[in-house]
């Protein structure tokens, strides 16, 4: 007796679905707006998407949007460059030098989990209430994940590549520049992705210190005044910044890490 073989495979593989994400996002916003318009959700508890859009539009038209964005971006970029390059240098040292690793890793592990907000009063004493304390807050938040990502990235570089370079008498500095740094780049870029997000999170904390302008200051003031539309409009700005940074890092990964298997 002949029977067709029963197919048992398939499923359990995730396929990219391009439009589903957009449709789901739009559906959530539509349901949310519908519930608000129908009066099921009190605007005190959750403002409507239209209300948030209105707040964003008001901000853009009054010119405040650019002022807040520019102030925050300046701080984020400065903090990210300072904290990121320090983290890169320390991470390299942790990855390459036995003594630095033995001394530094416990210190970093001890300091990493400290909530930076708890240190704000100290930061005010050390750096004042101008830009330095805000940049320092972001820099400190960026430093630790960057140092740890770089250090583990260096650890990921196959030792045979280093031995190979030594076997060709390549000078130590050139080994760091041509073998270790490019080899650690996947780890470093993962660190950039995480620490850029942390920088965005910390801009709110940084702007707790007497900031007049900035997305974080705007969110804080909106919260203090219980203006929930403005609050969520500010949060939307941060999300947009976060998504932009995510795309930028992905683009950098595609360009710089095309050599990966």
């Amino acid at each position: 007796m002949m029977a067709p073989l029963r197919f048992r495979g398939g499923g359990f593989t995730i396929q990219p679905k391009r439009h589903t994400g957009w449709i789901a996002g739009l559906a959530v916003i539509a349901i949310w707006q519908g519930a608000s318009s129908a009066g099921w959700v009190s605007p005190i508890f959750l403002p409507s998407p239209a209300g948030i859009a209105q707040a964003l539009a008001d901000m853009a038209l009054s010119g405040q949007l650019w002022r807040h964005l520019a102030a925050s971006l300046k701080r984020i970029v400065a903090g990210f460059v300072l904290g990121g390059s320090a983290g890169l240098a320390i991470g390299l040292a942790l990855g390459l030098l036995s003594h630095v690793r033995a001394a530094g890793l416990p210190i970093i592990s001890a300091l990493f989990p400290i909530p930076k907000i708890a240190l704000l009063p100290l930061f005010i004493l050390w750096f004042g209430i101008g830009e330095p304390s805000k940049v320092a807050t972001i820099a400190l938040g960026v430093f630790f994940p960057m140092a740890i990502a770089t250090y583990s990235g260096v650890d990921q570089v196959p030792r045979t590549l280093i031995r190979m370079a030594q076997s060709f008498d390549v000078p130590a500095l050139a080994i760091v520049g041509k073998v270790i740094l490019p080899g650690a780049l996947p780890g470093i870029l993962a660190g950039v992705r995480i620490s850029a997000s942390i920088g965005l999170v910390l801009v709110v904390a940084a702007e707790m210190i007497g900031a007049e302008f900035g997305v974080g200051a705007y969110i804080l003031t909106a919260g203090n005044l219980m203006r929930t539309e403005d609050l969520l409009a500010g949060v939307c700005l941060l999300s947009v910044l976060g998504i932009t940074v995510g795309f930028a890092v992905s683009a950098a990964e595609r360009r710089l890490l095309g050599w990966r298997q």
Binding site: L120, P121, L122, L125, M208, I209, G210, A211, L220, T221
Partner: peptide
């Protein structure tokens, strides 16, 4: 200067 907390004000 909105410093968000009394300890921050004291520091400043």
């Amino acid at each position: 200067l909105a410093l968000q907390s009394i300890p921050n004000m004291v520091s400043a």
